[in-house]
Design a protein around this nucleic acid. Structure first.
Lengths: 163, 163
DNA sequence: CAGGGAAAGTTGAACCATCAACTTTTGTCG
DNA sequence: CGACAAAAGTTGATGGTTCAACTTTCCCTG
């Protein structure tokens, strides 16, 4: 926004919607983090990394791709993979076809960890989000978040490739 | 969720809605943070603290209250107020009526800072969120986030008192 | 085929949030 | 009235995130 344009402030309805969305954006991640930390000893990001790997072919993904799927930077992912390796849930392997590429492979222990954590995590999501909404609202939420995502990520860098 | 109950997994529609919401939850804060950091040298939380103070009577609030309004813990707020004091935007004052209470007061420099930062911040919110939505969707978003908030914060601890 | 630039990762430093322990003040209940 | 518990803040340590600098590999072009 440039200084030349006059600010279009939020009207009453927009303000209410914004306060609500801001609240959800701040509280929901912290609730999910607490639950996962308590029940599985994982952060949401760590869980996402393991979960994405568990659904990938051969439980293997290039770090670049994994970073996008988990909505995080490559640097952040690299640090996290180092930690997950130390806990024995993930293994790094260099790519044979391209020397720049490193892939992450989910170990059997890592797979077991995801399976053990998924149920209660999904339960929390259902309880906090979907149990609060009507089926019609679920559809509305899908459309609304898609449209916002198109603004936040116009290049589709964080879009799931085919999922 | 207890082990005894079977997990109700997300159906296709819910899964799409969840991926969208999760994306917004992860990306929107980082976009807002970048904008504020670049244009004003503030984090979102710091901005929220200053903004809440600017709208309060006498530009003064008890730390406990301010923490709830800004959706943060008391500890986090205490650290932030220390930083904001060093930059001259906020002043701490002990309460005369209750020795346990500390209030934060927005200085004139702090008020000027909020005014200078608000316009471009609101511009970003409008651009990323409301310009992407129809008026009907704004209403839907308000209802949806209210209902989720009621789950996340059943006691209404993070509800704005009267705003 | 040589060199420059882009792509993919890694690493260390600086910064911020969280957690637990601690201090001070107030209220309450024998 | 004395003591104990709760409330409000503060503080230091710990751990995770970000940012910028750096390495290695690959691609492309002259």
């Amino acid at each position: 926004m440039t200084d030349a344009e006059a600010t279009r402030w939020l009207d009453a309805g927009e303000r209410e919607a914004w306060l609500g969305l801001a609240g959800v954006m701040l509280l929901l991640p912290s609730v999910l983090d607490s639950q996962l930390q308590r029940d599985a000893g994982l952060s949401t990001f760590e869980y996402l990394v393991l979960a994405m790997l568990s659904e990938a072919p051969a439980r293997t993904l290039q770090l670049k791709t994994l970073a996008a799927l988990a909505n995080g930077s490559l640097s952040r992912l690299s640090h996290v993979v180092t930690r997950l390796e130390k806990r024995g849930w993930v293994r790094r392997e260099p790519s044979v076809v391209d020397g720049r590429i490193t892939v992450a492979v989910l170990t059997d222990e890592g797979y077991a960890k995801v399976v053990a954590s998924a149920s209660s995590h999904v339960g929390t999501v259902r309880e906090m989000v979907f149990d609060a909404l009507t089926p019609a609202q679920v559809g509305q939420l899908r459309d609304i978040s898609r449209q916002i995502m198109r603004r936040l990520d116009p290049e589709g860098r964080y879009e799931p490739p085919t999922a």
